[in-house]
């Protein structure tokens, strides 16, 4: 990190541009935008779009680190651009590119289809044999039971972990960090009984065993979900489950 020189008035952005109707491949374009101490990279992009070049496309909405839209590569590292301050990249230039490991739709916008399919495939909803009628009130869940999955429920689906994952880079089939953490989120919820239904996919080749535990995903996760930890936990449980199924073949895994 460089110390803020007090006289910085502009900062240079190098932005990957790709317009499918006219460009064959992405090209870096350079723009100088005003520098303000309290600005994040997203503010600079908005300035650019509003005042300099209306053709730049990117996703954003909440600008408070919670909607998960604004992930991009900033100087080669996956970041939420609404939480990445210009002041941490002085004196610049700052290179802004679409998230790695995803096809590019246009400029800084990536294609989410693969993620969304895998997301749905792990059945991220409560599965139960029977429902307690609403009249009987809530399912009891102690703070300790809540704590058992809470961390994995904090995922904002920003996909920065996929952009950082060396396995996903080479293996399209890999379910990937956030989706596996999501499966653990439900498997560990005391209200859920669907572990068995999720098992096959999670334990398949595309599931946890693909992960070589590099841990890059947890390092870039802005919400401390620790997907690497989730995968590790699932591995341990599956080994235990596997042994258990031998010992008590008719019991629940």
């Amino acid at each position: 990190m460089t110390q803020a020189p007090s006289d910085a008035t502009t900062i240079r952005l190098e932005i990957a541009r790709y317009r499918p109707e006219q460009d064959e491949r992405p090209v870096l374009e350079r723009y100088d935008v005003p520098y303000r101490h309290e600005w994040v990279v997203l503010d600079a992009l908005n300035y650019l779009k509003d005042h300099i070049d209306g053709t730049l496309s990117y996703r954003w909405s909440c600008r408070m680190g919670i909607c998960g839209s604004c992930g991009m590569m900033v100087n080669g590292v996956p970041k939420l651009t609404c939480s990445a301050f210009l002041r941490d990249y002085l004196p610049g230039p700052i290179r802004v590119e679409p998230m790695a490991n995803f096809p590019v739709e246009r400029d800084l916008v990536t294609v989410l289809d693969d993620f969304m399919e895998k997301f749905q495939a792990v059945k991220p909803w409560i599965i139960r044999d029977g429902e307690q009628p609403l009249e009987e009130g809530e399912y009891r869940q102690t703070p300790a039971q809540l704590a058992d999955f809470k961390q994995f429920s904090m995922c904002i689906n920003c996909m920065l972990c996929y952009a950082a994952c060396p396995v996903y880079q080479h293996e399209d089939e890999f379910l990937g960090p956030a989706v596996l953490a999501l499966a653990q989120r439900y498997n560990h919820d005391s209200r859920d009984q669907g572990k068995g239904e999720r098992q096959e996919l999670i334990w398949s080749d595309e599931g946890i065993w693909d992960c070589t535990f590099v841990g890059e995903c947890s390092a870039v996760c802005p919400k401390h979900v620790d997907p690497a930890g989730a995968i590790q936990q699932a591995k341990v449980e599956s080994t235990v489950g596997w042994y258990r199924s031998f010992l008590a073949p008719f019991g629940r895994g």
Partner: peptide, 22 residues
């Protein structure tokens, strides 16, 4: 209340009291 309970049944991680109630 019914709607919020429904959301609880769908898995919303509401903060809890020590006895497990919402």
């Amino acid at each position: 209340p019914r709607e919020l309970t429904q959301l609880e049944h769908w898995g919303c991680p509401w903060s809890r009291e020590p006895d497990g109630s919402v």
